[in-house]
């Protein structure tokens, strides 16, 4: 039996991806099971999903605790040791990252491959929904799941033109995935920074949820406060010189401010993940 764990955020399509993998494996003549795990699900909040693939009907219905594969849909979470923890010996981690696999700070008896799924998704879908943009890469690493099966399954979930776009993303990631490398550091660090899954509010930090963040052009800004009124998270503060400023820990990068600005003084710019 193959067990897969998926890490992502609400809105990246990790749950749909788990179902596409299950459907693809079934297309390839295997039994499968896809379990999503969410609490109060919402866009941006970290979540996990699980898939089992076997040649007999899968009966166990616990979450996957020691996966063979760990797939991460989010650039920030890809930098977190959590995705490489409690894997089976020699397990494979597929991370969404622009970096080379040896540049990721992941340790353990694991192998790592990377693909810039966010880049592929923005190119092919026009938005950072990274699920199909990582599944192609996964097919290359997992011999049990074929790209053909995944393409068939994608069309089941997204018929027509949307399906074409997603299949193109899957094919691109199949081509672009890096080679597998063995993690240099066999011993994982004792203390792992937890992925913040808590909600928003005064004390919570959601800065890791952003794929894009607002950059304000103070020259263009007329100080009308429209952005400040519309921000759903009260993540804009008003400065002394009558201009808005982003509160980094509170902004989820939804883009409402940029959309509402009457003079287009706010631009959403892709966040650069630091090593």
């Amino acid at each position: 039996m193959i067990e897969i764990r998926l890490h992502g955020r609400g809105g990246q399509g990790a749950v749909t991806a788990s179902r596409i993998i299950a459907a693809a494996a079934f297309e390839d003549g295997l039994y499968s099971q896809a379990i999503p795990m969410y609490g109060t699900e919402r866009r941006g909040a970290p979540l996990t999903a699980y898939v089992r693939i076997d040649n007999v009907r899968v009966r166990e219905r616990e979450l996957v605790h020691t996966p063979d594969y760990s797939i991460c849909f989010d650039e920030f979470i890809s930098m977190n040791q959590t995705i490489a923890n409690s894997m089976k010996p020699g397990g494979i981690v597929l991370a969404n990252s622009k970096f080379k696999p040896e540049e990721l700070p992941l340790a353990g008896d694991i192998k790592i491959a990377c693909v810039d799924a966010t880049g592929i998704a923005i190119k092919h879908l026009g938005r950072p929904i990274t699920n199909t943009a990582i599944l192609g890469a996964f097919c290359k690493l997992c011999p049990e799941v074929s790209l053909k099966g995944v393409e068939k399954a994608i069309y089941k979930y997204f018929p027509g033109r949307v399906g074409d776009m997603n299949v193109a993303a899957a094919r691109a990631s199949y081509e672009q995935v890096t080679d597998l490398i063995t993690a240099k550091n066999k011993e994982p660090p004792k203390q792992v920074e937890e992925i913040v899954s808590g909600g928003y509010g005064a004390l919570k930090d959601v800065s890791g949820w952003r794929v894009f963040e607002p950059v304000i052009d103070e020259e263009k800004c007329i100080g009308c406060k429209t952005c400040w009124i519309y921000c759903p998270e009260a993540a804009l503060e008003w400065t002394a010189n009558n201009k808005p400023a982003m509160i980094s820990r509170a902004c989820k990068g939804c883009g409402v401010c940029a959309n509402e600005c009457p003079v287009k003084a706010i631009e959403m710019v892709r966040v650069q993940v630091k090593k």
Binding site: A22, S32, Q33, I35, P36, Y38
Partner: peptide, 10 residues
């Protein structure tokens, strides 16, 4: 709920 209602299988 969840572990069966939202779990996909053949």
């Amino acid at each position: 709920g969840y572990v069966l209602s939202y779990t996909a299988e053949p």
